[in-house]
Design a protein around this nucleic acid. Structure first.
Lengths: 260, 260
DNA sequence: TCTTGACTCTCACGCAGCGTGAGGGTTTAT
DNA sequence: ATAAACCCTCACGCTGCGTGAGAGTCAAGA
């Protein structure tokens, strides 16, 4: 027989939770002393573990009670229904993420916080290279800002960001077969765009200019050709389309909705 | 100037919501009559629409207030943080769905129909063979589950399944001339995959491991060599390709979800 | 003018699943 | 015997409102 405290540490829940489960009849103590103390045996511990398992699945307590009390209750059907509910929630959240993404892009495109900065962040040697690359296009002050932004991240964060970046390009290569305007590729470009924001705030014009540069600028082109020979022209087309969509479709719809 | 009812129908919210937003200072009426009535102008309507927009994104009301009152608040950063939170919730829900799935499978396998013996479709001798074969690879618990699943089928169904199984291998032998990646062979592997699911739910890794085992594991190899001497290496190649395609399709679906 | 019906207001409880005290008894170890 | 640790029962708080209750107000028709 365990007291509430013992059971709570055994199962990793709070004492209050045990009180509550008693209150709603989900888990009643195996015995109650005349002092009012609750005592639980191992069977109760087992039931509690079952409760916690189903709670992990995000089932609500009345449902768990129904399942465990097992009265004319089809567990498999219940779980399948629950699965559907979870899927629905996932899909809803995924559309939310998309909306958040486009909102961020809108805000960034509308109100550039700090105009055009450029990125660095490869090896020390290449860093200089890119710095000059960027300077030729955007000027020294902007580059310095970007470098400061980059240096403001921790070493680990920097590693993560770089990893994420190369991952995105690999995913893009894998998705090339679908064509530059395919939903798959365009979705990856959302990630790409998000990724850029670690370095600077790209306006829509910067984005589109970047797309062209990836193909037409010799140094960028070389970098991406090394990943895949067809990547530069592919990126140019895909990004052009991406910016197109952002400028027309979304601006009309969301912005109009907000301001009208 | 609109009354609460008017504003509520205009924006599609309840009167109670307007009361509440007033109470928490999120949306105060533009004017209040001496009778206590709330009156809202068009600016308030606009603000309400903004509120609803951010509420749609699942931001909580204090956050919305902070955003709209815009005091030393970086909207983009806030949205990025929110995006991460949404992503975390999505990932959590996705693992939950997985857990639910495996739970359902477990329950289905556990459904006690008749606790007879093993893989009854095979001859008594070969039965033991397959049993050990399976145990060596997957451990006892998995095999038991598979056996229980198998025993949950009726005798007639079991006979049909076994017939179907040997038929598939014969068809595969007949199709070997087309090559392991040919549509003909790949279509047969769909049937093969479906067939396996009568016994257990194979993950992609299990499928691919099975393909290798068919060639490299001496017992499996012997079994299939008996059907046709070139069948084992052929199956290994064909199955490897089949799994490859499945993985690609899966990736595409993920990306599609991300975009939609 | 009086009535009626549609609105309006301010409390205030309820929902899920507990967290977090408050205030007071009990047990256990020293 | 005393303190520490544990136990109990209220009971409010959190989110974002829904849902009345009870009472005042307004516009329009008889």
């Amino acid at each position: 027989m365990h007291t509430v405290k013992q059971l709570s540490t055994l199962a990793g829940v709070s004492v209050r939770t045990l009180h509550y489960y008693d209150e709603i009849g989900l888990l009643k103590p195996s015995a109650v002393g005349q002092n009012g103390y609750r005592y639980y045996d191992d069977q109760a511990l087992f039931r509690l573990q079952q409760i916690l398992f189903y709670r992990e699945l995000d089932l609500d307590l009345p449902q768990i009670k129904a399942i465990l009390d097992g009265r004319d209750f089809d567990l498999v059907t219940a779980l399948q229904k629950h699965r559907q509910a979870l899927q629905a929630r996932i899909e809803r959240l995924q559309t939310l993420v998309q909306t958040v993404d486009t909102t961020i892009l809108h805000l960034v495109g509308e109100a550039p916080m700090s105009k055009k900065k450029i990125f660095q962040g490869f090896s020390e040697a290449k860093q200089k290279e890119y710095e000059q690359e960027a300077m030729r296009q955007w000027g020294e002050a902007d580059v310095k800002e970007s470098i400061q932004l980059w240096n403001s991240y921790s070493k680990e964060r920097q590693a993560e960001i770089m990893e994420e970046g190369s991952q995105i390009y690999q995913d893009l290569v894998a998705a090339m077969g679908h064509g530059p305007r395919s939903p798959e590729v365009q979705a990856l470009l959302v990630r790409w765009h998000q990724h850029l924001r670690y370095f600077y705030e790209p306006t829509l014009e910067v984005l589109s200019g970047l797309g062209n540069a990836y193909n037409e600028h010799p140094d960028f082109n070389a970098t991406f050709t090394a990943i895949h020979p067809d990547l530069p022209p592919f990126l140019q087309q895909a990004i052009a389309h991406y910016v197109d969509v952002l400028e027309t479709e979304w601006l009309e719809r969301e912005l109009g909705l907000l301001k009208e």
